[in-house]
Each structure stands twice: as C-alpha cells, then as structure tokens.
C-alpha cells in the first residue's frame, strides 16, 4: 500500500479542492498510518502557533522617531528649496525688468537681492551635502544625534517662519527673508559639521 506523501498530507489541510485531494482524503480515512501522520502534522502546526511571542529586548522608539523626524524635515527642506528657487527667479525678473518698468531699484536693493540669490544657492548646496551623506544610514553616537536633532528642530522653525514671510509688509519682507535665509544657511552648515565631523559643539 502506498502511503500519502508530506505534500499530499499538506494539501489535505488546504481550503479548496486540488485535483486528487478527494482520493487522498479517502485514503487517509482508511489508512491508520496516514491518519496518524496527519494528526501529527496538525499537532505540529498547533505547537508552532503556541510558541511564545518573542519580545524586543531594547526600546528603540526614540531612535525610530528621530529617523522619521529627520526624514520628514528633509522632505520639507526639499519642498522649501523648490519654493526658494521660485522666489529667486522672481527676484531676478524684478532686477531685469524692474528698470524697464520705470521702477529702478536702488543699489542697496540690488545688493540685497544678489545676496539672497547667493544664500539660497548656498542653502541648496548644503542640503545636497547632507543628502549625499545620508545620516540615516550611518551609525551615530548619542550626543551627535541629540545635537543634530536640535539643529533640525531649529531648521524646521526657520522654515515655518519663511513660509510666513510672504504675508509680511512689503517694506520689511526682503530684509526678513534675507535674515531667515542667512539663519537657515548657518544651521545647515552646523548640521553638515555635526554629521561629517561628529562635532557635538556648534556655535550657531
């Protein structure tokens, strides 16, 4: 008498009817050995399900939140840098077409706009450095992680303020934008230092 193979016994436990399953079922009903083998299979699966739930030995939630926050901030930085590009482009247009429209900017305004363009460009460069460094993929000691997280929080605050600049009075808007972009570049520079040199003391 040919007994059922393990594949056939497993097929008997599946829902639905594979070809031949009814014949195997009839055999198992009549064959004591195959029925015993099927019982053992059921018991083994039951024992697998009854294995204790393994618990993590370390609490890494703070690390997870830090990773998530850094990732979210980077996405925001990217969005903002695209916004910054648009702002820089509009300023450039004002510089080029402003005189033709009879609103000749004063020398100080021109210098301000040029500095803003330059700072936005520097900001993008620093973001690229951080992006290339990819801090999430690196092992970081606790102090470095704390300093980096603090800088990222400050960056997030500056970014929020930058989003509000457009709502400000037109007379103070350029100076305020310039101040915030300067602060942003300073914070990004400090963040690059922290990640690339492991510096845990930053002046900014």
């Amino acid at each position: 008498m040919t007994h059922l193979t393990i594949e056939q016994l497993l097929a008997l436990r599946e829902p639905g009817l594979e070809p031949g399953v009814q014949g195997w079922r009839d055999h198992a009903a009549a064959c004591e050995l195959c029925r015993a083998e099927l019982d053992r299979l059921d018991q083994r699966v039951a024992r697998l399900r009854a294995l204790p739930t393994l618990q993590p030995t370390r609490n890494r939630f703070a690390e997870l939140q830090g990773r998530y926050r850094r990732e979210r901030n980077r996405r925001r930085l990217l969005t903002l840098s695209l916004g910054g590009l648009a702002l820089a482009a509009s300023l450039a247009l004002a510089v080029v077409f402003g005189p033709r429209l009879g609103t000749s900017p004063r020398a100080a305004q021109l210098a301000e706009q040029q500095e803003l363009d330059s700072i936005i460009s520097r900001s993008r460069q620093l973001e690229s450095v951080i992006e290339d460094y990819d801090p999430d993929r690196r092992v970081t000691d606790g102090r470095t992680a704390v300093v980096a997280a603090s800088l990222e929080d400050r960056l997030a605050r500056v970014d929020n303020q930058l989003q509000l600049v457009d709502l400000m009075d037109q007379r103070v808007r350029p100076q305020e934008a310039l101040r915030l972009w300067r602060e942003r570049v300073g914070l990004l520079g400090a963040l690059v230092d922290v990640h690339t040199t492991g510096a845990t003391y930053v002046r900014y």
Binding site: T53, L54, Q55, P56, R60
Partner: peptide, 22 residues
C-alpha cells in the same frame, strides 16, 4: 510585540529583527 515576533521568527538574529521592526 507581534511585529517583532514575526520578524524574529523569520530573521536569523535579534539585530535583524530589531532592524525590521524599525
């Protein structure tokens, strides 16, 4: 706990399972 348990039952080491949890 259930996510870690699943990961630990599939992965060979606790370190791998912790990474999968993250």
């Amino acid at each position: 706990a259930p996510v870690y348990n699943l990961a630990r039952r599939i992965c060979r080491t606790t370190e791998d399972a912790e990474d999968v949890l993250q």
